[in-house]
Simulated assay, not measured.
Amino acid sequence: MRFYIQAAQREVENFFNLKLMRQFIDQEKLTFYRADYWQSFPILFTNYPVNKPISLTGRFNNLEQISYPTQWLTTHQNSYGLYKRRVSIVPTGSAVATANAEVILSGLTTQLGSQHFRMIPDYWDFQYITGFDLDHMPMDLINLTGKLATFGPLGIAGDLILGAGIAAQSIGVDGLSQSISSTSSATNAGYGARILQYQKEIADSVKKLKLVYDEIRMVVV
């Protein structure tokens, strides 16, 4: 049962490209685009929703160049109360007055680094918190996970009603006979109807929930 639950959880996470359990993303690599920093504050797009930003560091391979204060990293929520897959860099709060102390430049200077390139792949190392607390886990995702987790156990339980591939059994003694049949067959388990029902409900739910928990990504080349 533990295996089927964990497999269903991972499948739901893959459906909507998110993490169910609240967890720490240790190192997500993001690309630097110079055009994003001209006459505007940059917005970095992440793989998972950003509940809380932890740190943002710019690196040339393993050489650290710049580190921003956490106060400058801002995340947002949509109309459903869900965090977006983005973080913006905006000098705010007390960090503005002490920028020289909190924005750390090391290794290569800015003039020798990012300003000379239009694009630097895997420049940013971003750490953040994503996922849901146990007390605030969305019930629609729990319902979807539960239905997915039942497929394996229901299939096995259906085979145990009369035996795998056995649709009916009968016994007769001295002219008396008794028979029993089920919905099982060589290609259908005893709980096949319930599995088909869940499959239809899951297909309908994924289409709707995709609009809530996932985001459309557009890339211009």
Rank of each mutant, 00 (worst) to 15 (best):
G131E: 08
G131D: 13
G131A: 05
G131F: 04
G131S: 13
F132C: 07
D133W: 02
L134K: 08
L134R: 08
L134Q: 10
D135H: 09
D135F: 03
D135C: 03
H136K: 15
H136S: 15
M137D: 05
M137C: 01
P138Q: 10
P138W: 06
M139F: 01
D140E: 15
L141S: 03
I142R: 08
N143V: 03
N143Q: 14
N143S: 15
L144K: 03
T145S: 09
K147H: 00
K147L: 11
K147P: 04
K147F: 11
A149L: 02
G152N: 12
G152P: 05
G152K: 13
P153T: 04
L154E: 14
I156D: 02
I156F: 04
A157L: 15
G158D: 02
D159M: 06
I161Q: 11
I161F: 05
I161R: 00
L162A: 08
L162I: 01
G163S: 02
A164Y: 14
A164S: 15
I166P: 06
I166N: 11
I166A: 04
Q169N: 11
S170W: 11
S170I: 00
V173F: 11
V173M: 09
D174P: 04
G175R: 09
S177G: 13
Q178N: 09
S179G: 05
I180L: 15
I180A: 11
I180M: 14
I180R: 09
S181E: 13
S181T: 12
S182N: 07
S182C: 03
S182L: 00
S184V: 01
S185F: 06
T187H: 03
N188Q: 10
A189R: 15
A189E: 10
A189I: 12
G190M: 04
Y191C: 01
G192W: 00
G192S: 13
G192F: 01
A193G: 05
R194T: 12
I195L: 15
I195K: 10
I195T: 05
L196F: 10
L196Y: 05
Q197M: 00
Y198T: 00
Y198P: 01
Y198R: 01
Y198F: 15
Y198V: 02
I202N: 02
A203G: 05
